[in-house]
Write a protein that binds this DNA or RNA. Structure first.
Lengths: 252, 252
DNA sequence: TTCCATTGAATGGGTGATCCATTTAATAAT
DNA sequence: ATTATTAAATGGATCACCCATTCAATGGAA
Protein backbone atom coordinates (compact mmCIF):
# COMPACT_ATOMS: atom_id res chain seq x y z
CA UNK A 1 0.00 0.00 0.00
CA UNK A 2 1.42 3.33 -1.05
CA UNK A 3 0.34 6.72 0.20
CA UNK A 4 0.54 9.81 -1.89
CA UNK A 5 2.57 12.45 -0.10
CA UNK A 6 0.45 14.99 1.70
CA UNK A 7 0.80 18.42 0.30
CA UNK A 8 0.66 20.80 3.24
CA UNK A 9 -1.46 23.66 2.04
CA UNK A 10 0.51 26.84 1.95
CA UNK A 11 -0.69 30.37 1.59
CA UNK A 12 0.79 30.99 -1.83
CA UNK A 13 -0.87 27.91 -3.29
CA UNK A 14 -4.19 28.99 -1.92
CA UNK A 15 -3.71 32.40 -3.49
CA UNK A 16 -2.74 30.96 -6.88
CA UNK A 17 -5.79 28.73 -6.82
CA UNK A 18 -8.12 31.55 -5.92
CA UNK A 19 -6.82 33.75 -8.70
CA UNK A 20 -7.07 30.87 -11.16
CA UNK A 21 -10.61 30.27 -9.96
CA UNK A 22 -11.50 33.87 -10.72
CA UNK A 23 -10.05 33.37 -14.18
CA UNK A 24 -11.99 30.17 -14.75
CA UNK A 25 -15.19 31.83 -13.63
CA UNK A 26 -14.59 34.71 -15.99
CA UNK A 27 -14.49 37.25 -13.17
CA UNK A 28 -10.96 38.04 -14.28
CA UNK A 29 -10.24 38.32 -17.99
CA UNK A 30 -7.17 39.14 -20.09
CA UNK A 31 -6.42 42.83 -19.77
CA UNK A 32 -7.82 43.14 -16.26
CA UNK A 33 -5.65 44.54 -13.51
CA UNK A 34 -5.40 43.07 -10.05
CA UNK A 35 -5.37 45.40 -7.06
CA UNK A 36 -1.98 46.74 -5.98
CA UNK A 37 0.13 44.26 -4.07
CA UNK A 38 -0.24 46.13 -0.80
CA UNK A 39 -4.03 46.23 -1.05
CA UNK A 40 -4.46 42.68 -2.27
CA UNK A 41 -2.19 41.38 0.47
CA UNK A 42 -4.35 43.08 3.05
CA UNK A 43 -7.56 41.81 1.45
CA UNK A 44 -6.23 38.27 1.53
CA UNK A 45 -4.85 38.69 5.01
CA UNK A 46 -1.31 37.71 4.10
CA UNK A 47 1.98 39.54 4.03
CA UNK A 48 3.05 41.24 0.86
CA UNK A 49 5.96 38.83 0.48
CA UNK A 50 3.72 35.79 0.39
CA UNK A 51 1.38 37.45 -2.06
CA UNK A 52 4.35 38.17 -4.29
CA UNK A 53 5.39 34.52 -4.25
CA UNK A 54 1.97 33.72 -5.66
CA UNK A 55 2.03 36.51 -8.23
CA UNK A 56 5.47 35.47 -9.37
CA UNK A 57 4.38 31.90 -9.85
CA UNK A 58 1.44 33.06 -11.92
CA UNK A 59 3.70 35.32 -13.91
CA UNK A 60 6.01 32.38 -14.64
CA UNK A 61 2.96 30.43 -15.72
CA UNK A 62 2.20 33.15 -18.24
CA UNK A 63 -1.06 34.10 -16.57
CA UNK A 64 -0.01 37.50 -15.26
CA UNK A 65 2.40 40.22 -16.22
CA UNK A 66 3.72 42.50 -13.51
CA UNK A 67 4.47 46.03 -14.46
CA UNK A 68 6.19 48.69 -12.45
CA UNK A 69 5.38 52.32 -11.97
CA UNK A 70 2.24 54.29 -11.29
CA UNK A 71 -0.51 52.79 -13.47
CA UNK A 72 1.47 49.59 -13.20
CA UNK A 73 0.20 46.46 -11.50
CA UNK A 74 -0.52 42.81 -12.16
CA UNK A 75 -2.30 42.40 -15.49
CA UNK A 76 -4.03 39.27 -16.71
CA UNK A 77 -2.38 38.18 -19.94
CA UNK A 78 -3.51 36.51 -23.10
CA UNK A 79 -2.56 32.86 -22.76
CA UNK A 80 1.05 32.23 -23.68
CA UNK A 81 1.17 29.13 -25.84
CA UNK A 82 4.91 28.78 -25.36
CA UNK A 83 4.39 27.67 -21.76
CA UNK A 84 3.94 24.16 -23.07
CA UNK A 85 7.43 24.33 -24.51
CA UNK A 86 8.80 25.07 -21.07
CA UNK A 87 7.02 22.04 -19.66
CA UNK A 88 8.51 19.90 -22.40
CA UNK A 89 11.99 21.26 -21.74
CA UNK A 90 11.67 20.58 -18.03
CA UNK A 91 10.54 17.02 -18.70
CA UNK A 92 13.60 16.48 -20.87
CA UNK A 93 15.97 18.08 -18.40
CA UNK A 94 14.58 15.94 -15.62
CA UNK A 95 14.84 12.79 -17.71
CA UNK A 96 11.11 12.10 -17.56
CA UNK A 97 11.02 11.91 -21.32
CA UNK A 98 13.80 11.08 -23.76
CA UNK A 99 14.95 12.69 -26.95
CA UNK A 100 13.93 9.53 -28.77
CA UNK A 101 10.38 9.74 -27.45
CA UNK A 102 10.20 13.40 -28.33
CA UNK A 103 11.41 12.79 -31.88
CA UNK A 104 8.99 9.93 -32.34
CA UNK A 105 6.13 11.99 -31.02
CA UNK A 106 7.12 14.80 -33.34
CA UNK A 107 7.00 12.56 -36.37
CA UNK A 108 3.55 11.34 -35.41
CA UNK A 109 2.22 14.76 -34.57
CA UNK A 110 3.53 16.24 -37.79
CA UNK A 111 1.92 13.46 -39.74
CA UNK A 112 -1.36 14.45 -38.17
CA UNK A 113 -0.65 18.14 -38.72
CA UNK A 114 0.06 17.64 -42.41
CA UNK A 115 -3.20 15.80 -42.91
CA UNK A 116 -5.17 18.41 -41.03
CA UNK A 117 -3.44 21.23 -42.87
CA UNK A 118 -4.31 19.58 -46.17
CA UNK A 119 -7.92 19.49 -45.12
CA UNK A 120 -8.20 22.91 -43.49
CA UNK A 121 -5.54 25.27 -44.82
CA UNK A 122 -6.82 28.54 -46.24
CA UNK A 123 -5.41 30.61 -49.00
CA UNK A 124 -3.73 32.92 -46.51
CA UNK A 125 -1.97 29.92 -44.95
CA UNK A 126 -0.61 28.86 -48.31
CA UNK A 127 0.60 32.38 -48.91
CA UNK A 128 2.35 32.56 -45.56
CA UNK A 129 4.06 29.24 -46.24
CA UNK A 130 4.97 30.39 -49.71
CA UNK A 131 6.57 33.53 -48.33
CA UNK A 132 8.47 31.42 -45.83
CA UNK A 133 9.81 29.17 -48.57
CA UNK A 134 10.93 32.23 -50.48
CA UNK A 135 12.83 33.53 -47.49
CA UNK A 136 14.35 30.09 -47.09
CA UNK A 137 15.45 30.28 -50.71
CA UNK A 138 17.03 33.68 -50.14
CA UNK A 139 18.95 32.53 -47.07
CA UNK A 140 20.09 29.43 -48.93
CA UNK A 141 21.45 31.47 -51.84
CA UNK A 142 23.26 33.81 -49.49
CA UNK A 143 24.58 31.04 -47.25
CA UNK A 144 22.90 32.47 -44.16
CA UNK A 145 22.43 29.04 -42.66
CA UNK A 146 21.48 29.97 -39.13
CA UNK A 147 18.81 32.31 -40.34
CA UNK A 148 17.60 29.50 -42.52
CA UNK A 149 17.15 27.39 -39.41
CA UNK A 150 15.01 30.13 -37.93
CA UNK A 151 13.03 30.02 -41.13
CA UNK A 152 12.51 26.31 -40.68
CA UNK A 153 11.24 26.88 -37.16
CA UNK A 154 8.78 29.37 -38.57
CA UNK A 155 7.79 26.95 -41.31
CA UNK A 156 6.54 24.39 -38.82
CA UNK A 157 4.74 27.07 -36.87
CA UNK A 158 2.92 28.23 -39.99
CA UNK A 159 2.09 24.68 -40.91
CA UNK A 160 0.62 24.10 -37.48
CA UNK A 161 -1.43 27.26 -37.74
CA UNK A 162 -2.74 26.04 -41.09
CA UNK A 163 -4.48 23.20 -39.22
CA UNK A 164 -6.88 25.78 -37.89
CA UNK A 165 -6.70 24.42 -34.35
CA UNK A 166 -4.70 26.26 -31.73
CA UNK A 167 -4.45 23.24 -29.46
CA UNK A 168 -2.80 21.23 -32.19
CA UNK A 169 -0.63 24.22 -33.03
CA UNK A 170 0.51 24.49 -29.43
CA UNK A 171 1.34 20.81 -29.23
CA UNK A 172 3.21 20.96 -32.51
CA UNK A 173 5.21 23.89 -31.30
CA UNK A 174 6.08 22.11 -28.09
CA UNK A 175 7.41 19.02 -29.85
CA UNK A 176 9.24 21.09 -32.44
CA UNK A 177 11.02 23.68 -30.34
CA UNK A 178 13.64 21.40 -28.80
CA UNK A 179 14.23 19.68 -32.09
CA UNK A 180 15.02 22.99 -33.74
CA UNK A 181 17.51 23.77 -31.02
CA UNK A 182 19.37 20.64 -31.97
CA UNK A 183 19.32 21.56 -35.60
CA UNK A 184 20.51 25.05 -34.78
CA UNK A 185 23.34 23.77 -32.62
CA UNK A 186 24.32 21.25 -35.28
CA UNK A 187 24.39 23.81 -38.06
CA UNK A 188 26.20 26.34 -35.89
CA UNK A 189 28.89 23.88 -34.86
CA UNK A 190 29.45 21.82 -38.00
CA UNK A 191 28.29 24.14 -40.76
CA UNK A 192 26.56 21.23 -42.46
CA UNK A 193 23.03 21.79 -43.63
CA UNK A 194 20.20 19.94 -45.21
CA UNK A 195 20.73 19.50 -48.92
CA UNK A 196 17.98 20.46 -51.36
CA UNK A 197 15.87 21.97 -48.60
CA UNK A 198 14.14 24.52 -50.81
CA UNK A 199 13.35 21.89 -53.39
CA UNK A 200 11.79 19.71 -50.74
CA UNK A 201 9.76 22.59 -49.36
CA UNK A 202 8.42 23.45 -52.78
CA UNK A 203 7.40 19.88 -53.47
CA UNK A 204 5.72 19.68 -50.11
CA UNK A 205 3.89 22.95 -50.51
CA UNK A 206 2.67 21.85 -53.94
CA UNK A 207 1.22 18.67 -52.47
CA UNK A 208 -0.38 20.72 -49.71
CA UNK A 209 -1.96 23.10 -52.21
CA UNK A 210 -3.38 20.15 -54.09
CA UNK A 211 -4.68 18.96 -50.72
CA UNK A 212 -3.05 15.66 -51.43
CA UNK A 213 -2.68 14.46 -47.85
CA UNK A 214 -1.04 11.17 -48.68
CA UNK A 215 1.65 12.78 -50.82
CA UNK A 216 2.26 15.62 -48.39
CA UNK A 217 2.53 13.24 -45.46
CA UNK A 218 4.94 11.04 -47.40
CA UNK A 219 7.13 13.99 -48.28
CA UNK A 220 7.13 15.19 -44.68
CA UNK A 221 8.05 11.76 -43.34
CA UNK A 222 10.86 11.53 -45.83
CA UNK A 223 12.15 14.95 -44.93
CA UNK A 224 12.03 14.33 -41.20
CA UNK A 225 13.93 11.11 -41.70
CA UNK A 226 16.62 12.88 -43.69
CA UNK A 227 17.00 15.60 -41.06
CA UNK A 228 17.23 12.97 -38.37
CA UNK A 229 20.00 11.25 -40.29
CA UNK A 230 21.86 14.52 -40.61
CA UNK A 231 21.61 15.13 -36.88
CA UNK A 232 22.92 11.70 -36.09
CA UNK A 233 26.02 12.09 -38.28
CA UNK A 234 28.67 11.99 -35.66
CA UNK A 235 30.90 15.06 -36.01
CA UNK A 236 29.97 17.39 -33.24
CA UNK A 237 28.24 14.63 -31.27
CA UNK A 238 25.36 16.85 -30.25
CA UNK A 239 24.70 16.75 -26.58
CA UNK A 240 21.30 17.07 -25.06
CA UNK A 241 22.80 19.09 -22.27
CA UNK A 242 24.35 21.67 -24.53
CA UNK A 243 21.33 22.06 -26.75
CA UNK A 244 19.04 22.49 -23.78
CA UNK A 245 21.25 24.79 -21.79
CA UNK A 246 22.24 27.06 -24.63
CA UNK A 247 19.59 29.71 -24.61
CA UNK A 248 19.76 31.68 -27.78
CA UNK A 249 18.31 35.20 -27.53
CA UNK A 250 14.70 35.29 -28.62
CA UNK A 251 14.33 31.58 -28.04
CA UNK A 252 12.01 31.77 -25.15
CA UNK B 1 6.47 47.79 -37.12
CA UNK B 2 5.81 46.19 -33.76
CA UNK B 3 8.23 45.88 -30.89
CA UNK B 4 8.13 43.04 -28.47
CA UNK B 5 7.80 44.36 -24.93
CA UNK B 6 11.07 44.51 -23.08
CA UNK B 7 11.20 42.14 -20.21
CA UNK B 8 13.19 43.82 -17.49
CA UNK B 9 15.37 41.14 -16.06
CA UNK B 10 14.51 40.49 -12.48
CA UNK B 11 16.41 38.58 -9.89
CA UNK B 12 13.96 35.73 -9.52
CA UNK B 13 13.95 35.07 -13.26
CA UNK B 14 17.70 34.94 -13.29
CA UNK B 15 17.63 32.46 -10.43
CA UNK B 16 15.03 30.26 -12.10
CA UNK B 17 17.07 30.22 -15.28
CA UNK B 18 20.27 29.34 -13.47
CA UNK B 19 18.66 26.46 -11.65
CA UNK B 20 17.06 25.23 -14.87
CA UNK B 21 20.46 25.50 -16.52
CA UNK B 22 21.97 23.28 -13.85
CA UNK B 23 19.19 20.79 -14.52
CA UNK B 24 19.73 20.89 -18.26
CA UNK B 25 23.44 20.36 -17.80
CA UNK B 26 22.83 17.42 -15.54
CA UNK B 27 24.57 19.04 -12.59
CA UNK B 28 21.28 18.77 -10.76
CA UNK B 29 19.26 15.60 -11.06
CA UNK B 30 15.98 14.33 -9.60
CA UNK B 31 16.51 13.51 -5.96
CA UNK B 32 19.21 16.10 -5.44
CA UNK B 33 18.82 18.66 -2.70
CA UNK B 34 19.57 22.33 -3.10
CA UNK B 35 21.41 24.16 -0.33
CA UNK B 36 19.24 25.60 2.45
CA UNK B 37 17.48 28.80 1.51
CA UNK B 38 19.64 30.90 3.79
CA UNK B 39 22.88 29.56 2.30
CA UNK B 40 21.73 29.64 -1.30
CA UNK B 41 20.48 33.19 -0.94
CA UNK B 42 23.88 34.23 0.30
CA UNK B 43 25.67 32.34 -2.48
CA UNK B 44 23.52 34.08 -5.08
CA UNK B 45 23.85 37.41 -3.36
CA UNK B 46 20.12 37.99 -3.02
CA UNK B 47 17.75 38.21 -0.12
CA UNK B 48 16.03 35.12 1.10
CA UNK B 49 12.66 36.53 0.05
CA UNK B 50 13.67 36.84 -3.57
CA UNK B 51 15.22 33.41 -3.60
CA UNK B 52 11.96 32.05 -2.28
CA UNK B 53 10.03 33.66 -5.11
CA UNK B 54 12.21 31.70 -7.50
CA UNK B 55 11.93 28.45 -5.57
CA UNK B 56 8.17 28.79 -5.38
CA UNK B 57 7.92 29.32 -9.10
CA UNK B 58 9.97 26.23 -9.72
CA UNK B 59 7.86 24.30 -7.27
CA UNK B 60 4.72 25.37 -9.13
CA UNK B 61 6.39 24.23 -12.33
CA UNK B 62 6.83 20.81 -10.77
CA UNK B 63 10.61 21.00 -10.85
CA UNK B 64 11.20 21.25 -7.12
CA UNK B 65 9.49 20.13 -3.96
CA UNK B 66 10.08 22.10 -0.79
CA UNK B 67 10.03 20.19 2.44
CA UNK B 68 10.10 21.54 5.93
CA UNK B 69 12.03 20.43 8.96
CA UNK B 70 15.59 19.37 9.60
CA UNK B 71 16.66 17.16 6.69
CA UNK B 72 14.15 19.17 4.67
CA UNK B 73 15.07 21.43 1.79
CA UNK B 74 14.39 21.96 -1.89
CA UNK B 75 14.50 18.63 -3.71
CA UNK B 76 14.63 18.17 -7.46
CA UNK B 77 11.58 16.17 -8.53
CA UNK B 78 10.86 13.62 -11.17
CA UNK B 79 9.11 15.49 -13.97
CA UNK B 80 5.42 15.95 -13.31
CA UNK B 81 3.58 15.15 -16.52
CA UNK B 82 0.41 16.77 -15.22
CA UNK B 83 1.97 20.22 -15.61
CA UNK B 84 0.84 20.18 -19.19
CA UNK B 85 -2.74 19.84 -17.98
CA UNK B 86 -2.35 23.04 -16.00
CA UNK B 87 -1.12 24.86 -19.08
CA UNK B 88 -4.10 23.61 -21.02
CA UNK B 89 -6.48 24.71 -18.27
CA UNK B 90 -4.94 28.17 -18.17
CA UNK B 91 -5.23 28.52 -21.93
CA UNK B 92 -8.88 27.62 -21.71
CA UNK B 93 -9.55 29.93 -18.77
CA UNK B 94 -7.87 32.79 -20.59
CA UNK B 95 -9.81 32.13 -23.75
CA UNK B 96 -6.72 31.42 -25.82
CA UNK B 97 -8.17 28.12 -26.89
CA UNK B 98 -11.79 27.06 -27.08
CA UNK B 99 -13.59 23.96 -25.93
CA UNK B 100 -14.32 23.17 -29.54
CA UNK B 101 -10.65 23.25 -30.46
CA UNK B 102 -9.80 21.11 -27.48
CA UNK B 103 -12.43 18.51 -28.36
CA UNK B 104 -11.31 18.41 -31.96
CA UNK B 105 -7.71 18.05 -30.96
CA UNK B 106 -8.68 15.27 -28.59
CA UNK B 107 -10.43 13.34 -31.33
CA UNK B 108 -7.38 13.64 -33.57
CA UNK B 109 -4.90 12.79 -30.84
CA UNK B 110 -6.90 9.77 -29.74
CA UNK B 111 -7.06 8.56 -33.30
CA UNK B 112 -3.28 8.64 -33.35
CA UNK B 113 -3.07 7.05 -29.93
CA UNK B 114 -5.30 4.17 -30.94
CA UNK B 115 -3.17 3.44 -33.97
CA UNK B 116 0.03 3.61 -31.99
CA UNK B 117 -1.39 1.47 -29.23
CA UNK B 118 -2.42 -1.12 -31.80
CA UNK B 119 1.14 -1.19 -33.06
CA UNK B 120 2.99 -1.06 -29.76
CA UNK B 121 0.83 -2.31 -26.91
CA UNK B 122 2.32 -5.09 -24.83
CA UNK B 123 0.59 -7.90 -23.07
CA UNK B 124 0.76 -6.00 -19.78
CA UNK B 125 -1.00 -3.05 -21.38
CA UNK B 126 -3.83 -5.27 -22.55
CA UNK B 127 -4.12 -6.72 -19.09
CA UNK B 128 -4.27 -3.30 -17.47
CA UNK B 129 -6.97 -2.23 -19.91
CA UNK B 130 -8.83 -5.48 -19.32
CA UNK B 131 -8.77 -4.91 -15.57
CA UNK B 132 -10.04 -1.39 -16.12
CA UNK B 133 -12.94 -2.63 -18.22
CA UNK B 134 -13.81 -5.12 -15.51
CA UNK B 135 -13.91 -2.36 -12.92
CA UNK B 136 -16.06 -0.35 -15.28
CA UNK B 137 -18.40 -3.31 -15.50
CA UNK B 138 -18.58 -3.56 -11.72
CA UNK B 139 -19.37 0.13 -11.29
CA UNK B 140 -21.99 -0.09 -14.01
CA UNK B 141 -23.72 -3.02 -12.32
CA UNK B 142 -23.72 -1.23 -8.98
CA UNK B 143 -24.77 2.10 -10.43
CA UNK B 144 -21.68 3.89 -9.11
CA UNK B 145 -21.64 6.30 -12.01
CA UNK B 146 -19.17 8.84 -10.75
CA UNK B 147 -16.65 6.15 -10.00
CA UNK B 148 -17.25 4.87 -13.48
CA UNK B 149 -16.23 8.26 -14.82
CA UNK B 150 -13.00 7.99 -12.88
CA UNK B 151 -12.57 4.61 -14.50
CA UNK B 152 -12.99 6.18 -17.90
CA UNK B 153 -10.34 8.74 -17.11
CA UNK B 154 -8.02 5.91 -16.18
CA UNK B 155 -8.95 4.03 -19.34
CA UNK B 156 -7.59 6.80 -21.55
CA UNK B 157 -4.48 7.06 -19.42
CA UNK B 158 -3.81 3.37 -19.82
CA UNK B 159 -4.45 3.56 -23.52
CA UNK B 160 -1.98 6.42 -23.84
CA UNK B 161 0.61 4.46 -21.90
CA UNK B 162 0.09 1.55 -24.26
CA UNK B 163 1.54 3.73 -27.04
CA UNK B 164 4.89 3.30 -25.39
CA UNK B 165 5.73 6.98 -25.72
CA UNK B 166 5.55 9.24 -22.70
CA UNK B 167 5.36 12.41 -24.78
CA UNK B 168 2.27 11.17 -26.53
CA UNK B 169 0.89 9.98 -23.22
CA UNK B 170 1.41 13.40 -21.69
CA UNK B 171 -0.29 15.12 -24.60
CA UNK B 172 -3.18 12.70 -24.47
CA UNK B 173 -3.61 13.31 -20.80
CA UNK B 174 -3.61 17.05 -21.32
CA UNK B 175 -6.36 16.97 -23.93
CA UNK B 176 -8.37 14.43 -21.95
CA UNK B 177 -8.37 15.91 -18.47
CA UNK B 178 -10.69 18.86 -19.11
CA UNK B 179 -13.00 16.70 -21.16
CA UNK B 180 -13.37 14.27 -18.28
CA UNK B 181 -14.27 17.15 -15.99
CA UNK B 182 -17.16 17.93 -18.23
CA UNK B 183 -18.27 14.35 -18.27
CA UNK B 184 -18.00 14.18 -14.50
CA UNK B 185 -19.98 17.39 -14.05
CA UNK B 186 -22.61 16.18 -16.50
CA UNK B 187 -23.03 12.82 -14.84
CA UNK B 188 -23.03 14.36 -11.38
CA UNK B 189 -25.67 16.93 -12.27
CA UNK B 190 -27.99 15.01 -14.58
CA UNK B 191 -27.42 11.42 -13.62
CA UNK B 192 -27.41 10.44 -17.28
CA UNK B 193 -24.63 8.17 -18.43
CA UNK B 194 -23.31 6.62 -21.56
CA UNK B 195 -25.37 3.62 -22.59
CA UNK B 196 -23.68 0.32 -23.40
CA UNK B 197 -20.32 1.63 -22.25
CA UNK B 198 -18.95 -1.73 -21.16
CA UNK B 199 -20.04 -3.34 -24.40
CA UNK B 200 -18.22 -0.64 -26.37
CA UNK B 201 -15.12 -1.02 -24.29
CA UNK B 202 -15.04 -4.74 -24.82
CA UNK B 203 -15.44 -4.39 -28.56
CA UNK B 204 -12.69 -1.81 -28.65
CA UNK B 205 -10.32 -3.86 -26.55
CA UNK B 206 -10.93 -6.87 -28.79
CA UNK B 207 -9.98 -4.84 -31.85
CA UNK B 208 -6.91 -3.56 -30.05
CA UNK B 209 -5.83 -7.08 -29.14
CA UNK B 210 -6.19 -8.10 -32.74
CA UNK B 211 -4.06 -5.07 -33.55
CA UNK B 212 -6.72 -4.05 -35.99
CA UNK B 213 -5.95 -0.34 -36.09
CA UNK B 214 -8.67 0.56 -38.56
CA UNK B 215 -11.40 -1.15 -36.55
CA UNK B 216 -10.15 0.17 -33.22
CA UNK B 217 -9.91 3.70 -34.56
CA UNK B 218 -13.39 3.46 -36.02
CA UNK B 219 -14.82 2.26 -32.72
CA UNK B 220 -13.06 5.03 -30.85
CA UNK B 221 -14.31 7.70 -33.21
CA UNK B 222 -17.83 6.38 -32.86
CA UNK B 223 -17.61 6.33 -29.11
CA UNK B 224 -16.20 9.84 -28.87
CA UNK B 225 -18.98 11.08 -31.09
CA UNK B 226 -21.61 9.45 -28.89
CA UNK B 227 -20.12 10.93 -25.75
CA UNK B 228 -20.00 14.34 -27.38
CA UNK B 229 -23.68 14.03 -28.26
CA UNK B 230 -24.49 13.11 -24.67
CA UNK B 231 -22.63 16.14 -23.38
CA UNK B 232 -24.45 18.43 -25.74
CA UNK B 233 -27.90 17.23 -24.67
CA UNK B 234 -29.19 20.36 -23.13
CA UNK B 235 -30.41 19.62 -19.60
CA UNK B 236 -27.82 21.02 -17.25
CA UNK B 237 -26.31 23.22 -19.96
CA UNK B 238 -22.77 22.51 -18.89
CA UNK B 239 -20.80 25.64 -18.34
CA UNK B 240 -17.13 25.91 -19.06
CA UNK B 241 -16.76 28.11 -16.04
CA UNK B 242 -18.26 25.63 -13.64
CA UNK B 243 -16.39 22.65 -14.98
CA UNK B 244 -13.09 24.47 -14.84
CA UNK B 245 -13.56 26.06 -11.47
CA UNK B 246 -14.92 23.01 -9.71
CA UNK B 247 -11.85 21.32 -8.39
CA UNK B 248 -12.71 17.85 -7.35
CA UNK B 249 -10.37 16.36 -4.74
CA UNK B 250 -7.62 14.31 -6.29
CA UNK B 251 -8.08 16.09 -9.61
CA UNK B 252 -4.87 17.93 -9.68
C1' DT C 1 -1.18 79.44 -25.54
C1' DT C 2 2.02 75.76 -26.20
C1' DC C 3 5.72 73.10 -24.94
C1' DC C 4 8.97 71.09 -22.12
C1' DA C 5 11.24 70.34 -17.61
C1' DT C 6 10.33 69.26 -12.78
C1' DT C 7 8.33 66.94 -9.30
C1' DG C 8 5.80 63.78 -6.58
C1' DA C 9 2.86 59.92 -5.85
C1' DA C 10 1.83 55.07 -6.99
C1' DT C 11 3.58 50.75 -7.66
C1' DG C 12 6.54 46.83 -8.30
C1' DG C 13 11.52 45.27 -6.96
C1' DG C 14 14.33 44.07 -3.27
C1' DT C 15 16.46 43.80 1.62
C1' DG C 16 17.17 42.30 6.51
C1' DA C 17 15.68 40.99 10.79
C1' DT C 18 12.68 38.26 13.27
C1' DC C 19 9.51 34.85 14.71
C1' DC C 20 6.69 30.49 13.99
C1' DA C 21 5.88 25.45 12.75
C1' DT C 22 7.53 21.14 11.47
C1' DT C 23 10.64 17.54 11.30
C1' DT C 24 14.32 14.75 12.78
C1' DA C 25 18.05 13.14 15.54
C1' DA C 26 20.22 13.13 19.79
C1' DT C 27 19.51 12.69 24.59
C1' DA C 28 17.49 11.59 28.84
C1' DA C 29 14.22 9.24 31.68
C1' DT C 30 11.61 5.10 32.62
C1' DA D 1 15.11 -1.63 25.47
C1' DT D 2 11.53 1.66 25.08
C1' DT D 3 9.61 5.92 25.30
C1' DA D 4 9.48 10.80 26.28
C1' DT D 5 12.05 15.15 25.94
C1' DT D 6 14.76 18.43 23.92
C1' DA D 7 17.36 20.98 20.60
C1' DA D 8 18.73 22.17 16.07
C1' DA D 9 17.81 22.74 11.15
C1' DT D 10 14.85 24.24 7.83
C1' DG D 11 10.94 26.03 5.35
C1' DG D 12 6.73 29.28 6.26
C1' DA D 13 5.45 33.81 7.18
C1' DT D 14 5.52 38.65 8.85
C1' DC D 15 7.07 43.37 9.31
C1' DA D 16 9.23 47.54 8.26
C1' DC D 17 11.81 49.60 5.25
C1' DC D 18 14.14 51.51 1.08
C1' DC D 19 14.97 51.78 -4.05
C1' DA D 20 13.70 52.25 -9.12
C1' DT D 21 10.43 53.11 -12.51
C1' DT D 22 6.61 55.17 -14.46
C1' DC D 23 3.35 58.63 -15.40
C1' DA D 24 0.38 62.42 -14.47
C1' DA D 25 0.15 66.89 -12.61
C1' DT D 26 2.33 71.14 -12.13
C1' DG D 27 4.54 75.15 -13.42
C1' DG D 28 7.68 78.02 -15.78
C1' DA D 29 9.67 79.50 -20.35
C1' DA D 30 9.13 80.48 -25.24
Amino acid sequence: MAFRPIHTRRAFEEICDRIREQLALGVLKPGDKLPPERDLAQQLGVSRNVLREALRSLEMAGVLRLQKGVKGGAFVQQGDTSRMNVVMRDMLSLGTISIRELSEARVQVLDLVVRLACANARQSDFEALQANVERTELFTREGRLLERVECAREFYKLLAIACGNKVIAMITDAVTEIHMRFVYAKVASSGVAMARLVERRKQFLAALRERNAAAAARLMRGHLGAVQKMLEQDPGAMSLQIALAEMKPGMK
